[in-house]
């Protein structure tokens, strides 16, 4: 039996997120038909854009879906999955995907594999466990499966198709949740999760001012996103949203530069997939050097400004 995939296109109201194309890439590892689903209000342009990659895109438009609330979203996703006879329902393992998809699994009486990093066959997946210290191979036994995908492990699909968009009748059902507001962390920089270069700072930057003074010029020079260790997020030096780690963002840029970060397991879990890792730390015994490709041991307040100067001179 060939699979019928339903891939949820997450969006910000203007564009669908690139991570949804990573979910599509994972789905395509299992032969079958691919359907997309876009939910919200005024979403036609995003449905059209997603249809450039997926042959059949369903558009669930409803006032009750204006904000991405787990309860109504899960119902509509499950309704569409049933109507097309989906065998696999996919989303990126973003905060949004993690919020909604387990509810979808219950509605479909499905087993669920979270945050997968590899597809083995049509019901077997690899996923990081214990903060990535252990890789688990898991198998789902239910007729319908729900899977969330770690975006950094699957290159977004670039292949173009001429897909069809069709409106579906959406019934959001009961909703016990009201959207009050969203306070975006504003940044001129690339998004942490998508950036090709990430510069992260830790406690070795000494203070919020030290963090700014060291990390910003280096990130500016490299056009990099800024990340941070849990310690400095907890201390309130930088927004929580910048945290890289098991419980923060998982990143896998081409280049990751860790400045004054010791390299606790939970931080390493969020960045060890990076192609090249550079660590700058005064403590030669810091565990970060175990995962780094290149290390510089010394005072970050001397090394980082010199690095910026040398990059400028290139």
């Amino acid at each position: 039996m060939s699979a019928i995939h339903l891939i949820i296109a997450e969006h910000d109201g203007t564009h669908f997120k690139k991570s949804s194309l990573s979910a599509l890439a994972a789905a395509q590892k299992i032969p079958g038909a691919c359907h997309g689903l876009v939910l919200g209000k005024n979403i036609k342009s995003m449905a059209d854009a997603f249809a450039k990659h997926v042959p059949q895109v369903h558009m669930a438009e409803h006032d009750g879906l204006e904000h991405r609330l787990a309860q109504p979203y899960a119902k509509v996703i499950a309704d569409v999955a049933k109507s097309i006879g989906a065998t696999h329902v996919w989303a990126a393992a973003t905060a949004a995907g993690k919020d909604v998809m387990p509810r979808v699994a219950v509605r479909l009486d499905a087993g669920m594999a979270s945050d997968i990093q590899a597809v083995i066959d049509d019901k077997t997946y690899k996923r990081p466990m214990w903060a990535g210290d252990i890789t688990g191979t898991v198998q789902l036994h239910s007729p319908v499966q729900v899977i969330t995908v770690r975006p950094t492990e699957f290159a977004p699909v670039e292949t173009q198709v001429q897909g069809q968009v069709s409106a579906v009748k959406a019934d959001p059902g009961v909703n016990n949740t009201r959207f009050i507001g969203f306070e975006a962390v504003k940044s001129e920089r690339p998004e942490l999760a998508d950036a090709t270069i990430v510069v992260s700072g830790g406690r070795g930057c000494k203070s919020p001012e030290g963090f700014k003074q060291l990390i910003e010029p280096l990130a500016d020079q490299l056009r990099a996103a800024i990340g941070a260790s849990r310690a400095v997020c907890d201390a309130g030096w930088v927004p929580n949203d910048w945290q890289v780690g098991q419980t923060g963002k998982v990143v896998a840029p081409k280049l990751y530069i860790a400045v004054g970060i010791s390299g606790a397991i939970q931080h390493v879990a969020g960045m060890k997939g990076s192609k090249v890792i550079v660590a700058i730390n005064k403590d030669p015994e810091a565990p970060i050097f175990q995962v780094a490709d290149y290390g510089l041991v010394g005072d970050v307040f001397t090394i980082v400004p010199e690095l910026v100067q040398r990059l400028k001179a290139l």
Binding site: T137, Q139, H141, I277, G295, L307, L314
Partner: peptide, 28 residues
């Protein structure tokens, strides 16, 4: 009835510890 089972756990391949470089110029 379990809908998910763990077939196997494994420790990810150990990454070779990196190279400590003498100076910034070498890093660049």
């Amino acid at each position: 009835k379990a809908s998910l089972s763990i077939l196997k756990l494994e420790l990810p391949p150990k990454k070779q510890a990196g190279e400590i470089l003498p100076d910034v110029a070498t890093l660049v």
